[in-house]
Amino acid sequence: MSTTEAPTATSREWRLAARPQGWPTTDDFRFVERDLPPLGPGEVRVRNAYLSVDPYMRGRMDDKPSYVPPYELDKAMEGGAVGRVEASRSDDLAEGDLVLHTLGWRDVAQGAAASFRRIDPVPGVPESAYLHVLGMTGLTAYVGLLDVARMEPGDTVFISGAAGAVGSVAGQIARLKGASRVVGSAGSDAKVDLLTSKYGYDAAFNYKSGDVGALLRDAAPDGIDVYFDNVGGDHLEAALAAFNRGGRAAVCGMISAYNTEEPPAAPRNLSELLKKGLTLKGFTVGFYADRMKDFIAEAGQWLAEGSLVYDETVVDGVDNTLQAFLDMMQGANTGKMLVRVS
């Protein structure tokens, strides 16, 4: 255990100043610098290297019951982060340890050592990867397909938001697990090209170029067996129409509705559930934390073999975290949206 620490320590951090109404704006946030107290027994101080911004964070900005507590007003916001321990008063973590934690949206994090998980680095894997392809994002794709949607070899799989952090991994896992056809949607022609040229999708379409239902029918003329839903709305309605008998959906996110002020209307064709014997199951990755060990073992091997690839969109500077989040919500990222702290 080390007790060495800098004579002064500060943290630059983002705080929620007001609950957004519809799309968040810069007026809803404050960027502040504050002094950190001396480390107490069992505590560590971490210099963050990368921060994660994710769609679920929009829900935490509202004061509504959900699977995670809402952000508190005028308190430091939270999110996934990876960094190095720079001072420790804990026997469990030493200076220089690489750790994963949820005290993001700031450059320096401090707290009980139990709040930080030490990472044993995989050779050749960058630190940022533990926030996506080898982290919760990758695990989300893995359990969504295999545990929630119960994908089987030979299935036709449709993934919405397919060029995002979760979707880009989910499509590759579907292929690696024996899907007969993998179809994705994305929000630009460039992303559509990336899905088929890099991520192994058999077909993909730009959902902004026409009716989603018609585009999906063209991409999957024999119907779909599994739907990994990151979008909701018209994509969910299109999937219900395209499902074969006994189809299964893993409902991971509904980004199309995150910034609406009124609850969206339900899909107009929910009767497909009855006619086809469909299963729609929502989930959050926290329900499946016990699967992380299996996921890391399998995904680590895929990475080493080069059969699992990824993209990152990296924004520099903790002061640009808010803009990175807003851009991600508008679909500006390819793969995982990250903030490189320094």
Rank of each mutant, 00 (worst) to 15 (best):
V157Y: 03
L103W: 08
V82R: 08
A162I: 08
M329E: 13
L73H: 11
N269M: 09
Q323W: 00
G161P: 12
R60M: 15
V44Q: 05
T196Q: 13
A49V: 09
D193H: 12
G138Q: 06
G210N: 05
K336W: 11
K64E: 15
H101W: 13
V32T: 14
G213M: 05
G167L: 12
A149D: 01
F205S: 00
P123D: 07
P153R: 03
P41N: 15
S2L: 12
M136V: 14
G164C: 11
D54R: 06
V85P: 08
P221W: 04
V251K: 00
G154C: 06
W302P: 01
M337G: 07
V108A: 04
A257S: 15
R117I: 11
Y67S: 12
A190G: 00
V309H: 09
D97M: 08
L176V: 01
L100F: 15
A238Q: 05
A76R: 03
G300N: 03
P7D: 12
M136I: 12
T140M: 05
N230I: 03
W14S: 05
L103F: 14
G154Y: 04
T156D: 07
P37V: 06
Y142P: 09
D27F: 05
A163E: 08
W105N: 03
D311C: 00
T140N: 03
A162D: 07
R89P: 00
Y288M: 11
G232K: 04
A87T: 11
A266S: 15
V318K: 08
G42S: 11
L326M: 11
V183N: 01
H235Y: 13
K276W: 04
G282R: 07
R245A: 09
E13Q: 15
R58N: 11
E43N: 13
S271K: 06
L308S: 04
V53Q: 07
E13M: 13
N48Q: 09
A49I: 09
A332E: 14
V46D: 02
T140W: 07
V133I: 15
R34L: 03
D155Y: 03
D28C: 13
L39E: 05
G135I: 12
D35K: 14
S307L: 02
P126E: 12
I296H: 14
L236H: 04
A220I: 10
G223Q: 09
Q21I: 11
R217A: 15
G42Y: 03
E262R: 14
A94L: 13
A170K: 06
A186V: 04
S88H: 05
I224F: 02
